[in-house]
Computed example of a mutant assay.
Amino acid sequence: MRGFPSARKGQVIGLLGGSFDPAHAGHVHITRSALKRFGLDHVWWLVSPANPLKTRGPAPLAERMVAARRLMQHPRVLVTDLEARLGTFYTAQTLSALQRRYPGVRFVWLMGADNLTQFHRWQDWRWIMDHVAVGVLARPGDRISARLSKTARIYRHARLPKQAAHSLGRRQAPAWSFVNLPMSDQSSSAIRARGEWQ
């Protein structure tokens, strides 16, 4: 599969999607934490061509990819442009395409708690919850609202206890885990506002 990363049947791969406009230390911290807390074999960053929930377009994909690869240095983490290669626009489309392309690989969708708060606004969000394990990493200020979110309430029966988070990737969906971490509160929008990303 030219241009696509390799993965073996039975591997557990975390997927961290976003515009990474720009990638920053918070993304790195979430990724390293997810590898440990959710028992992942690898994490793939999915640097998206665009974010359907944002009105302002991101910097060119090639620039964001270069910056992300420069920042994220880890032997078990791969920065990819898979959504551009697959031609998918929404997360559910991407996940469905990856499951077809990698039969037997177990994917875990990773996101910050801020995303869980508005996850019910995502295209086909119930399909995502029903077909892929989801690992939620708490960020400062988002813990309470995330736990009270529509998604958290509807899927409370599928939430793993804290001590079972490490087995998330081996669970049958729907399954999700919420872990509290001492998080970096750095954000891409704050970096852009300070003029640090050109």
Rank of each mutant, 00 (worst) to 15 (best):
Q163A: 15
V134I: 07
Q118W: 07
Q11H: 04
Q186I: 13
T88G: 05
D130F: 00
V47R: 02
G57H: 12
S184Q: 08
R8Y: 02
A34F: 09
I128E: 14
I128H: 05
N180S: 15
A92M: 01
A138G: 14
R8S: 14
P174C: 05
V28D: 04
P60G: 04
L15K: 15
R143N: 03
A138K: 05
D21N: 15
W197A: 13
L40S: 08
P140D: 06
G18W: 07
W44F: 08
V77M: 15
M65R: 09
P182C: 01
L137M: 11
R143F: 00
G104D: 05
W176A: 10
H74A: 03
P182K: 10
A23C: 15
R192P: 02
V28S: 00
V28A: 03
Q99V: 01
R70P: 00
V136H: 01
L35I: 12
P22T: 06
I191N: 08
Q118V: 09
L16I: 14
A152N: 11
N51A: 12
R76N: 12
R121C: 11
Q198W: 11
W197C: 04
S188M: 04
S19R: 00
R139I: 10
H74N: 13
P182R: 06
V77T: 14
H27L: 06
G195M: 11
W127L: 15
D81L: 06
F178R: 08
A59C: 03
A173S: 14
L137G: 02
D81E: 14
V79W: 02
V179D: 00
A23Q: 15
G112T: 14
Q118G: 13
A165E: 09
R76Q: 11
G10F: 09
W122S: 04
L181H: 11
V43L: 09
Q11N: 08
H120N: 12
S33K: 14
D41P: 04
D130I: 02
L116R: 02
Q123R: 13
D81A: 10
S187L: 05
S19G: 02
H157V: 00
D130A: 06
A97D: 08
A92H: 08
V66G: 03
P161I: 10
D130N: 11
M65D: 03
R192T: 04
D81V: 08
A92Y: 11
A7L: 07
G141V: 02
F119S: 06
I154G: 05
P161V: 04
P103C: 12
Q186E: 15
A165N: 13
L78R: 14
V136G: 09
A113F: 07
S177R: 07
G39P: 03
R70N: 14
L160E: 13
G87F: 10
G14K: 12
S96R: 10
S149C: 07
G14T: 04
G14Y: 07
S187A: 11
E63T: 10
W122L: 03
R76P: 01
H27Q: 08
R106Q: 05
L98Y: 12
P5F: 10
N115M: 15
R159A: 10
V47E: 06
K150L: 05
D130T: 01
Q198N: 14
F38W: 08
K150R: 13
Y102N: 14
T80N: 12
M129A: 15
K162A: 13
D81Q: 07
L53R: 01
R147W: 00
V47L: 07
R56I: 05
R126Q: 14
G10P: 15
Q99L: 02
H120S: 12
G26P: 01
A152H: 02
